[in-house]
Design a protein around this nucleic acid. Structure first.
Lengths: 204, 204
DNA sequence: ACAAAACGAACGGCCGATCGTTTGTAAACC
DNA sequence: GGTTTACAAACGATCGGCCGTTCGTTTTGT
């Protein structure tokens, strides 16, 4: 039988992806040359083409795989969550922060290198992002329906929550003052205060 | 006596900055060539050098001028605000959103092209951003001191608020469903709910 | 042996930046 | 008030260098 890809090839392909994430995160997609990338992997630039079709396809694959993993893991987390909207929102917040802190590079690239994608690739990723936003909006809508949440605009609230939570990636340092658990608690508290029906204050 | 700069030169310099903002916002700093920029302005690439020192200096100037304007206008807005921490926070939120929506391009560039700056320029901008974060932290601290706010970590709360508010820039369209005033109200409500001392809920 | 994978040279093309020159125009002078 | 002068500003050619990609060849591993 013939191999489809040798074991060495699979390791190289993985190394290219790892190095790609690192260099794109550090310098930007446009500023990363394939010669830099190959050098980081330890091969020649021309050898990259045994594993990728074009530079643009590499970027698209990195972002697509990130979005697929995010969607799948979010589904898994929500499937294991309790039934009340408040608990499901708690689960969403915790999962979003934990996942995003573990994959800072992927998240940054998926959010800010979209403009380097051509139109069809761009549309694909935007659709996946819409799907992710939809998962949070479904949680919020459910809470509004049961009266747990008091939300004036589900879509904008979802955008705001996601922006706030994803913003953690821009300042988090593993050796920093706060643990991941503390960061999760702090943001969970803030999100819930912003969503849960308030019985007294009339704001603003 | 000799002129320092002719009127034609000032207009060209302004046109270069305007075109620079547009092209960097659209394609990224690394992907914007000086030939593209010159073409957008209507001159030859070499003529750019009558107005800028290097491509890098152009980026730095654009970001620095944006930050200086942001800091100055924020000071002005807060100086005209009432004394209570709640009202000052309201003022900060409104000003931040309105300013950021008016200068979407500047904001995007100042936030996501920092990595294209060399070390000294980068440090300068980061210091200005720290100063801006400090202004919000001062409002939050004042509210905590008077008992108006219940905040577990002023710095992280400030980061979260800023991430949430700045996130509006990524989806806002002038022709969209919501007016600027509605967006400001919605976010003001969310921020205040997250900060104002709650007398009932024990969360999370 | 055979295919996967790495190699190294080469392609055309665009990059940021520099140079000496020309052009336009406002101020200085007669 | 026309002429001269001085300089900002635009020009066009050009520099060395790096870009993404291709190709034919060689090495590697089973």
């Amino acid at each position: 039988m013939s191999r489809i890809a040798g074991p060495k090839g699979l390791r190289t392909a993985a190394a290219i992806r790892r190095a790609g994430l690192k260099l794109i995160y550090r310098h930007g997609f446009g500023a990363m040359s394939l010669r830099d990338l190959a050098s980081e992997v330890g091969i020649q630039a021309s050898s990259l083409y045994n594993h990728i079709r074009t530079k643009q396809d590499l970027l698209f694959d990195l972002i697509r795989e990130h979005m697929e993993a995010l969607l799948a893991q979010t589904d898994a987390a929500l499937a294991a969550a309790p039934d009340t909207a408040t608990d499901r929102l708690r689960t969403f917040v915790r999962h979003h922060i934990v996942y995003h802190l573990e994959k800072k590079q992927d998240v940054f690239i998926a959010n800010f290198e979209l403009r380097s994608l051509d139109a069809p690739h761009y549309a694909t990723i935007v659709a996946m992002r819409r799907a992710y936003e939809g998962k949070l909006m479904a949680v919020l809508d459910a809470g509004v329906a049961t009266g747990e949440f008091d939300i004036h605009d589900t879509r904008i609230t979802a955008y705001s929550i996601l922006a706030m939570l994803t913003g953690v990636c821009t300042w988090y340092k593993p050796e920093g003052r706060l643990s991941k658990a503390e960061i999760v608690d702090l943001h969970t508290r803030m999100v819930l205060h912003g969503c849960i029906a308030q019985r007294e204050h009339a704001l603003p």
